[in-house]
Structure formats: C-alpha cells, structure tokens
Design a protein around this nucleic acid. Structure first.
Lengths: 208, 208
DNA sequence: CCCATGTGATACCGATAGGTATCATCAGGT
DNA sequence: ACCTGATGATACCTATCGGTATCACATGGG
C-alpha cells in the first residue's frame, strides 16, 4: 500500500461531502472566505478539488451551503431555548443572549460568521447573501415574536435593542480581551428587558 | 486621438496622492478591500498603478493609510461632540450616538469600514490591523472617560453597552430597511444612559 | 539650455485562484 | 467475474492580482 500515507484516517468512514463541509467550516470561520482556496479546503478534507466541484459545483455554492448549516445551528439554538422555557418569553430571550454569550470564547477574535461573510461578499447577488438575509429575517421575526409574547409595549424596538447588543458583542470580540464580554452582554440584555418592561406594570419585582 | 481625452479634469489640480486616497475611500468602502485591485484604484484616480506604488509602497500600506484617515474623521467627530457639550458627558455620549445614527444612511448596506476591514484581514499582522486596534482602544478610552465624568456607577459596563449598541446598529444596516434604525439607536442609547444612571439618584424624573 | 524630478503609460513577471478534463482506482450489485 | 458509479490524483487552462521595470513627457530651477 504505497499510497496509504496520504489517507486521513481520523474521520475514517465519513463521506467526502461531509469532510469537505467540516473543513470549510474550520477554514472559512478562522481565516475568512476569500483567503481560503478550494485547494486548501480539499487538502484539509483529505480529498481533492474535483470532489468538491462534483458535490457543490462552485465555491460560491459551497459557501452558501456552509452558511446554511451555520444558520441551521443558530435556529436549533433558538428552538432549544424556546423549548427550555415554554411560555416564558423573557427567559427565552435571555437564553438566546446566553447562547451568544457562551459562544463568544469560541468565536474569539473572529466574530460572527454572518457579519464577516457579508463584509467579504459585497455583491448582493452572491448566493450566500440570500442565505444570510433569510436567516436574519427569520431571527428578527422570532425575536419580535418573543418580545410580543412577553407583553413588551414596543416589541420592534426591544427586538432591535437586543439585536444590536448581540451583534455588537460579537463584533467586539475582534478587539482586545473578551474576558468580561459575556457577563456584560447578559447584564446589558437583562437591563434592556427590565427597562422596556418598566413602563408597563410600574412595580415589578426587581430581585434577580 | 490625442492623449488629452483620458485626462480626468474634474479634480484638476488635486495631486495624485490625494486622488488615489479619494478613489481608495470610495472603492474600499463600497466594494471592500480584497475585491478592489490596485489597477481599479488607479483608474478611478485617473492615474496608474506605478504612481500608487511610488507613493505608498504596497497595497497594504495604502489600506492602512486609508483607515488612518477614516479613524481621524471619527476622532474629529469625537472632538466636535465634546466641544459642543463641554462638561455635559451625557450629551456628549448622546452626541456620539447621534453622529453614528446620522451616518447610517451614508454607510447604508455596507456597514462600518473598521468592522468590514477586520473581517477581510484576518491576519492580525496586517498593518491596517494596528490602525484599527489603536482606533478602537482610543474610542473606548474616551467613551469610558465620558461615562466616568457622567458619574455613572460602572463606566466600563455602560461604555460597553453603548459600544455594543453602536456597532450593532452599524452592522444591522446590512439587512433590510434602515428606515428607523437611527431613531431606534438614539432611543436605545438614551435608555441605557437613563437606566445606568438610575441606581444613583433613586427617584428619577421619568418624563421624556 | 539642460538637467532633475514627478508623473503617465505600457509591458511584463510570478503567484494564486476558480474551474475543467482525464485517467486510475475501489466499492457494491448483478 | 463484470459493470457501474463514486472517488482520488494530476495536469492543465484562463483570469486576476500584487508588484516591478522601462520608457516617454512635462515642468521648473539652475
């Protein structure tokens, strides 16, 4: 078996398509889209360019597929957080914030893949852009829904505030230390919800 | 065809270095850094690649110089807002938010150049990265200073909240309409300041 | 008048990228 | 045993990009 050395046995029986997506995940996330060539992805996936083009057609399509998977993971987190706190929209929103906060160390210094991808793909006709836009729209819709359920007086405004803070926290991972970013994010999110709820029932329990 | 046709007379006597920086500003901001070649910048500036390399040495240096100028504009806005409301840190912070809010339509759908540039330059050794980091550090320092002056109990926390919201608002210009983003940003910033000031004077005037 | 400088123009180089064609190989099903 | 489809390997094409070398010209100072 002369050629056996090049075979990456770590993922052994994983089909090439999955290996390619895994490699793309790692490389796109850590180094960006345009900096990573198809050849590099193929090597990391233990396969060849041809296999990638056979499965995805173009690099753009691979990028879109990758973002589709990332978006699905975010939506799964949404589902989870919703299921974990049924009928408690405030806890759901904070759970979402916690999901982002806990993910900050993992994306350390590389920020949110959606934000980064948009920056790298200014061409709005790129297939990946549709994926991002749909994901963002979906996320906004769900967040506004939660805010509405929570009885917030201006769900759109509160959802915007939460969204801004979530995105801003992710962006801030680019700069300096991220030591307290997660904690800060949680406190800020709680503060926003408390404040936007305040005009409602006047005296609510401030304990926390 | 004499050579006179190719001469861009619109900016006439502006020296080539300035024309290049103007062209870079337009192209980098609207299309990103990596998508824009040196050749394209030269053409838009009405000059040639050689002139660019004579003045800046490398494309990376040009990118850094461009961001240095953008950073200077932001800091000038900081200065302005500080001078407009001397001794009134709360108004200064809100003035800063207003500066961002009013700039949103201009950066419509292209977000903040710093955020985008970081996404496009994952290599932290890139000369432009130093410019960005210094700018962000400077901005944070000033914002924390304002929060401290304002007598806020936890200036770091409040500065982080303001920063997150400011960055988040700029990121959100990528998606959908930006109709109310400016107004929303202002209301959110005001809310944060009010709320973080609240623990101080107990009974605060809720009037708008 | 002449020379130095800054600039425009063009051609080119090496590297890399996305994408394709071709052939060898290996697995599974009949 | 054979055929088929998916995969691996390699070589190649074309385009673009950052960067350089070279030449032409225009200007302004001595």
């Amino acid at each position: 078996m002369a050629a056996s050395a090049g075979r990456p046995s770590r993922v052994a029986t994983l089909p090439p398509r999955e290996r390619v997506l895994d490699a793309a995940e790692e490389l796109f996330r850590s180094e960006g889209i345009r900096r990573v060539g198809v050849q590099a992805i193929a090597e990391r996936a233990g396969t060849t360019k041809m296999a990638i083009y056979r499965h995805f057609g173009t690099k753009d399509a691979l990028v879109a597929e990758w973002l589709r998977i990332v978006a699905a993971e975010y939506q799964a987190a949404f589902d989870r957080v919703e299921a974990d706190h049924p009928g408690r929209p405030r806890e759901q929103i904070l759970g979402l914030a916690r999901f982002i906060a806990e993910g900050l160390p993992a994306i350390s210094h590389r920020g949110c893949p959606f934000i980064n991808s948009i920056a790298e793909l200014p061409d709005s006709s790129h297939p990946a852009r549709r994926v991002i836009e749909e994901h963002k729209a979906h996320q906004t819709r769900r967040l506004v829904g939660m805010c509405t359920e929570a009885g917030l007086p201006d769900p759109g405004q509160t959802a915007a505030a939460i969204t801004f803070v979530l995105e801003g926290a992710q962006v801030s991972t680019h700069n300096g230390s991220i030591d307290h970013v997660g904690d800060r994010l949680m406190r800020i999110a709680e503060g926003i919800l408390d404040q936007h709820l305040a005009p409602l029932g006047a005296s609510r329990a401030p304990a926390g």
